[in-house]
Design a protein around this nucleic acid. Structure first.
Lengths: 247, 247
DNA sequence: TCGAATTTGTGCGTATGTATG
DNA sequence: GCATACATACGCACAAATTCG
């Protein structure tokens, strides 16, 4: 039936099936804690041999997404899926506060560098101006959920990294500079395959897809504060935009 | 160097290399119209045989991303890229008006069907209520850019399909029902590999990624009008959210 | 407790795809 | 292009565990 599997594509059938089942779970088409169809039924659905289905299920079990019980069936263990709101007041660390355990980001590295053209454009600085670059990773339930790189005007926010690593929050760090409130000015979204570095940092499997946002945060007056590039594992994350029509 | 390629991962090395080169180009690490390193250099960088690199380059050439010149080298071809605004007033057919030639959508099919749960939820109807389903494709510069499925309350918008196919625009069709204005109420975004049907309809290559939006459009009073699922080719499209801070 | 049906687990032979030198 | 090694996918057969009447 649903044999939209690609042969000779460089992606093994078992991995395509694993991705499909994983995304079914993520999209709530499969009940969390529910029972999957039997291996024979799955093989028929995907138009493959039962061995191939078993390879896919084994991969997902090793990943901790499924559990198979001999003579019984295969069960969905949990649903590690997060919806990130992308609103005017978006702060990623806040956004997932009520959905997952961790709210803190972890500082991977920080450095001063001259602004590239896209960073300079986002921060309304001249290209080459010294900027502070923060590389961070945030986790939910122990799993990496975002890999983010942010830039700030170094002349103004030189010691940002200290404040961030102490609080794990950009919002809190900006408060030290007297910035009580800020807004998401623009967000651009695209998707691509993860690089090898991202596969390692976000604990993904080869061929995984990442959602990528390029965003500018600004003061209520429209003055740019932060330019950031954030990468999300596409199989675990949905981005959400809710508009308040009353505005 | 970068030989963190994964073996036995279900994704062939040549595809991992192709994805890596492809994302380098997307991230502007490789110059458009620039020359790639030679096959021997690439093989060394990824720690694989030259044959494997050649398989990756051939796949990217067939995809139209590279061009190899016998005795010379491999060159990056320019990629047409479209930015879709996702704002309060988002209408896809309007959005690309100033960027690309075509503004019209083409009706693929229309039918009446009972509302599935997610459609019913989006339109605030009871599941099973009769809804009108429109399947459309829009193109820019002769290339398919969106593949969209929309649902409307059949009791109210029964003859929607006629109006749409005449004008090629949802906005224009809704005017026939006295709806002068409407707003994007919510948008959810995720990304996944394209299905075989999508590969055919959007003229993609095997293993391509699609950006998927689930959206609700509503009247200024908040009454849902349209629930739609839209798929964009991720290598040709960036979604953009611009916030008017003054609001 | 039994037995039959169902479901997962395992072995083997073969063909094709992937990767190397 | 050729030869070699391993990964992937298939088909068939049968074993082992669970469920249920």
């Amino acid at each position: 039936m649903e044999q939209n599997l690609q042969r000779r594509s460089g992606v093994a059938l078992w991995r395509q099936i694993a991705d499909s089942i994983s995304s079914d779970i993520v999209r709530n088409i499969q009940d969390p804690n529910g029972k999957l169809p039997g291996e024979i039924a799955l093989a028929a659905r995907y138009g493959v041999n039962r061995h191939t289905v078993r390879t896919a299920l084994r991969a997902l079990s090793e990943q901790g997404l499924l559990e198979t019980r001999h003579g019984d069936g295969t069960y969905v263990l949990r649903k590690p899926h997060v919806v990130y709101p992308l609103g005017r007041r978006t702060r990623f660390s806040d956004g997932i506060g009520d959905q997952a355990g961790a709210k803190r980001g972890r500082l991977v590295s920080s450095m001063l560098e001259p602004a590239e053209t896209n960073v300079a454009l986002g921060l309304a600085l001249h290209p080459g101006t010294q900027v502070l670059r923060l590389d961070t990773i945030s986790e939910a339930d122990g799993y990496p959920m975002t890999r983010s790189t942010s830039w700030f005007d170094a002349g103004r926010f030189a010691t940002m990294a200290d404040f961030f690593s102490r609080t794990g929050s950009i919002t809190a760090a900006l408060k030290h500079y007297g910035i009580e409130d800020y807004f998401r000015k623009s967000t651009r979204i695209h998707a691509r395959h993860a690089t090898t570095a991202e596969i390692a940092e976000l604990k993904l499997s080869a061929g995984a897809i990442v959602l990528v946002t390029h965003a500018v945060n600004a003061t209520p007056e429209g003055e740019p504060l932060q330019y950031s590039i954030t990468r999300f594992p596409a199989d675990k994350v949905t981005l959400s935009i809710e508009t308040d029509i009353a505005q």
